[in-house]
Design a protein around this nucleic acid. Structure first.
Lengths: 187, 187
DNA sequence: TTTACTTTTTGACAATTGTCAAAGGAATAC
DNA sequence: GTATTCCTTTGACAATTGTCAAAAAGTAAA
C-alpha cells in the first residue's frame, strides 16, 4: 500500500482523515499471469493500481486482437471511458505477469468524492495525468512513421518492451507484427 | 453566458454561491477570423468556451502545419497539456471564424477549486469529458483506413467539415491533402 | 528429450498512402 | 472586373505498410 500512497503523494497530500478513508476503500489483489481483470464488453467497475506486475488493455477489432494500453508497476490500469461513464466498452484487461494490485471501486470513489474535497481533487489530478499520457501517446501515433514510433517507444519504455510479446507491441503501435519484425531487423 | 451555463449544468448543478463566483471569473471576448488565442510555444493560461465561432488547435511538425483539434460552438478550446501543466507546448490556437468566447484563467480556476468543492468537481467532470473525447479520437485514428476515418468524421462532425479548409481536415485525420481529395472524389 | 505450442522472422506480392509538380477553381482585395 | 491569393484537384511515380503463407526459433509440458 505504501507504493500506492507514494504515487498519490506526488499529486496531493491528503489529510489524515481523507487518507484513512481512502485506504479503507482499497482492496489488495494477487493474481497469476493470464488472469482477466475486466471482460471485454463489460462495465469497468474498478481501477487498479499496480504494485507489482504488468497488465494489458486490449480489444478485438475485425477479428484481430489490438493492444490498447500497457501498464506496469506504479501505474494505473483501467478501461478509462467505461469507468468514467459506467457503460460497457469493448476493452478488456488481462495480466501479462503475476501481479499484486490495489483495486478501488467506482462507487467507492463516488462516495469519497462526495465526502472529501481533497479526494475529489485527487480524482481530478489522476484524470489530468491520464489526459497528459493519452496526449503523448496520441502525438506519437499521429505523425510518425512505424519505425519512428517503435524507436520512440524503445527510448521511453524499453523496459516494458522486453516483457511483452512482439505482436502486442505491434498492435499497440498500430502496425502489423511482420512490419515490426522487419523494423527491428534493420537496427 | 447562458450558453456556457447550459453546458455546465449538463455536468453539475452549482450552488448559488459557486455559480456566482464562477460567473465572476469569466471574461467575454470577441475576435475576428484569424485571431490568435494562443501562440505556439507559449503557456496556455486560459481555456475558452465557444459561444459562437470556430477555433483550431495546431502545431508545426517538420515544417508542416498540423491541425490537432477543432472546436465549434458549445465546446471548449484549450491546449490541454499546456493548460494542465502550465508549461509551454508547441500547440497554438487560432480562430477560423469570427467568434464570441468566454475565457477562464488557470489561476482563476485554481482559486475556485480551492474554495468550492463543487467547482473542483466541475473541473473533474470537464476533464473527464475531455478524456472521453480524446479516447474516441484516438480509437478513430488507431485502426481505420484513411477512407474510414474520413467517413466517420463525416458522420459525426459533418457540420464542421464544411467550415474548414480541406488541408486542415486532412492533417486532422493524419493524411495528406491530396489523399483526402482523392478519397472524396470516389464518393 | 520429444512433442506441442507460441512467438518471431522471412518472402513475395498487393494495397494504401505519400511526394512532387502542375493545373483548375474559388474567394478576396483593389 | 482584374489581379492576387488561397484552396482543391489531378497525374505520375515512389515509399511504406499490409496480407498471406511458410519456415525458423523459442518455450513449456509430458
Amino acid at each position: 500500500m505504501e507504493k500506492f500512497f507514494a504515487y498519490i503523494n506526488q499529486l496531493i497530500k491528503l489529510t489524515e482523515e481523507s487518507g484513512q478513508a481512502f485506504a479503507a476503500a482499497l482492496k489488495r489483489l494477487e493474481y497469476p499471469k493470464g488472469h482477466t481483470l475486466l471482460r471485454p464488453g463489460a462495465v469497468c467497475h474498478h481501477f487498479y493500481f499496480i504494485e507489482e506486475g504488468l497488465t494489458r488493455t486490449y480489444y478485438i477489432k475485425n477479428g484481430k486482437d489490438v493492444t490498447d494500453w500497457l501498464s506496469a508497476e506504479n501505474s494505473i490500469a483501467v478501461s478509462i471511458v467505461s469507468f468514467l461513464t459506467q457503460k460497457p466498452d469493448i476493452r478488456g484487461i488481462e495480466l501479462l505477469e503475476p501481479s499484486v494490485l490495489w483495486s478501488v471501486s467506482y462507487q467507492g470513489m463516488e462516495s469519497l468524492y462526495a465526502k472529501y474535497h481533497d479526494i475529489e481533487r485527487l480524482g481530478r489530478l489522476i484524470v489530468n495525468s491520464g489526459i497528459i499520457q493519452m496526449q503523448q501517446r496520441f502525438d506519437d501515433l499521429h505523425f510518425a512513421s512505424a519505425r519512428g514510433r517503435y524507436h520512440r517507444l524503445m527510448e521511453t519504455n524499453s523496459s516494458i518492451i522486453n516483457r511483452v510479446p512482439l505482436g502486442m507491441i505491434a498492435s499497440y503501435l498500430g502496425i502489423t507484427q511482420e512490419t515490426l519484425s522487419r523494423i527491428r531487423s534493420l537496427y
